[in-house]
Amino acid sequence: MATDAALRRLLRLHRTEIAVAVDSAFPLLHALADHDVVPEDKFQETLHLKEKEGCPQAFHALLSWLLTQDSTAILDFWRVLFKDYNLERYGRLQPILDSFPKDVDLSQPRKGRKPPAVPKALVPPPRLPTKRKASEEARAAAPAALTPRGTASPGSQLKAKPPKKPESSAEQQRLPLGNGIQTMSASVQRAVAMSSGDVPGARGAVEGILIQQVFESGGSKKCIQVGGEFYTPSKFEDSGSGKNKARSSSGPKPLVRAKGAQGAAPGGGEARLGQQGSVPAPLALPSDPQLHQKNEDECAVCRDGGELICCDGCPRAFHLACLSPPLREIPSGTWRCSSCLQATVQEVQPRAEEPRPQEPPVETPLPPGLRSAGEEVRGPPGEPLAGMDTTLVYKHLPAPPSAAPLPGLDSSALHPLLCVGPEGQQNLAPGARCGVCGDGTDVLRCTHCAAAFHWRCHFPAGTSRPGTGLRCRSCSGDVTPAPVEGVLAPSPARLAPGPAKDDTASHEPALH
């Protein structure tokens, strides 16, 4: 009773807030009518008042009428009001819900409408889902798969039609296919003929059939049928067999079959498995989609049935006599038709004709302190090069084509190399640097090759510096006499390219 009084008091307290929050009759008014909170006449009256005075006034009048009803109607109103779709449509209802007392429970059932309790003993237990329907569909599909699609060729003596089998029958139906081979029951999904010589313990000319048996419980189990008994694959494991010639990621696949039913060829011909030897223990289905393919039931050349050999690369099948050149017997292992072999060759040939990528240039590290003349020119003028003790990398590039010797140069053309002071002394051009340390401070000019250098860098042994005729380390061993002091540049003949010694390969005349 306390809860009923509290709900009535809360409705009177929030009546105006609810009326202002509800700006549309749908969905709240319609939901109240659906849950029998508002009768039909009051529903029509509220809609009429909404058209006349507006939605807030109409709902305020409806809530005032609701306060005169019993506690069950008020409880049902609060339940409908706080439904998710009403809270989404009328956003101003959320503060009312947040301020609702926590001790007021809106989930209690309506009085007088409590459903009768059902004894637990009368409640049926839930049924577990079964796979009976899938099993029945598999039974119905198996006879259809064994139905012949056409008439065999005159040369083929193997013609068999499976008798119709009602689904209610649980007995196995067997077809006489000759040579002791028996087909599987209607619940078998796949059958492959297997030679009895590969099964340990088999006697006589009995041949087993590799099947997948579907049981009534819905589970499946792969086994071997020899005669009327089934054997699990673990009985046929043979770890010492060295003649297993397995197909790549293979499961067994029928390579020879008669049109209309699988079996042995007439005249004692023995149908073979995809792999010879003992049956392997793992009978998992292969991951290669080509091995799941269903080959055609007629020859791809003459479009006739009979004894066919199936290609492992495509769905086509052929007569042995229709092949070019014809085959006398079934080859062992994987067999592919000429079209598949030709496609494989065409895929391999473009790969062989692809040009080989060019090898990157060989990189040879230079000892610290040495650099090529090109690196000396590329440096920024007026700045010493940083990191001189790091190992430089010199790339061996292809030799350029031989060019004509340089033409003779006048001494005026070499004027930018040297600057003559007032006393006739050779001065260095701006930006000249030593080729060893890279520093341009207090550098000297070689009178023979006009290269800038430090005496301490080229002659670290402490050799005394002569007063005139300074030469760098590369030119100090040259027998050519030094030019007379005061000459602007060496003779043009000295600039012609010539053979250089091994220790002077990195010091070429550089223009500054």
Rank of each mutant, 00 (worst) to 15 (best):
P176R: 15
A144F: 13
L210C: 02
K114H: 03
E137K: 01
A140C: 05
Q262N: 12
F59Q: 00
L67V: 05
K259M: 13
L11M: 02
P109G: 03
Q172T: 15
K102W: 15
V256P: 08
I224Y: 08
K221C: 09
T232C: 05
I209P: 03
Q225C: 00
D4Q: 00
L67Y: 03
K259H: 04
G180M: 04
S153Y: 06
V22N: 01
P56L: 01
Q225D: 03
R89A: 07
A33F: 03
V206G: 05
T72K: 15
V123A: 08
K52E: 10
R9A: 11
D198A: 10
G260H: 13
L210F: 10
R9S: 14
A5T: 10
S196N: 09
E45V: 02
H35M: 00
K83V: 01
I224M: 11
Q57F: 03
H14Y: 08
C55G: 01
P125V: 13
A170Q: 04
P95T: 14
G227P: 04
Q157G: 11
A170W: 15
C223V: 09
V199Y: 14
R257I: 07
P124W: 15
K243V: 08
G197H: 05
A142F: 12
L63W: 04
D103W: 07
I18W: 01
S135Y: 08
P116F: 12
C223A: 06
A258H: 11
A160L: 07
V199A: 06
Q57Y: 05
P39Y: 00
D103S: 15
V38K: 03
L87V: 08
M184G: 10
A205N: 06
A138C: 15
Q94V: 14
F59N: 01
T130H: 05
Q172H: 15
D98A: 07
R15A: 01
V123H: 13
K253S: 07
P126I: 02
P162A: 07
H60E: 00
H30D: 02
E137C: 05
S195V: 04
F77K: 03
I18N: 00
G91F: 02
L81I: 02
P56H: 10
Q262R: 08
P27I: 03
K245A: 14
V192T: 09
L47T: 00
P162S: 04
F100M: 00
K243L: 15
G263H: 03
Q173H: 08
A6C: 07
R9L: 03
P124E: 09
D84G: 08
A58E: 01
E171P: 13
F77V: 02
L28S: 00
K222S: 08
S187G: 06
M194Y: 06
L93C: 01
R8E: 00
M194R: 06
C55L: 01
E45F: 05
L49H: 00
P39S: 04
L28Y: 01
P143G: 09
R149I: 02
V226K: 02
H48P: 00
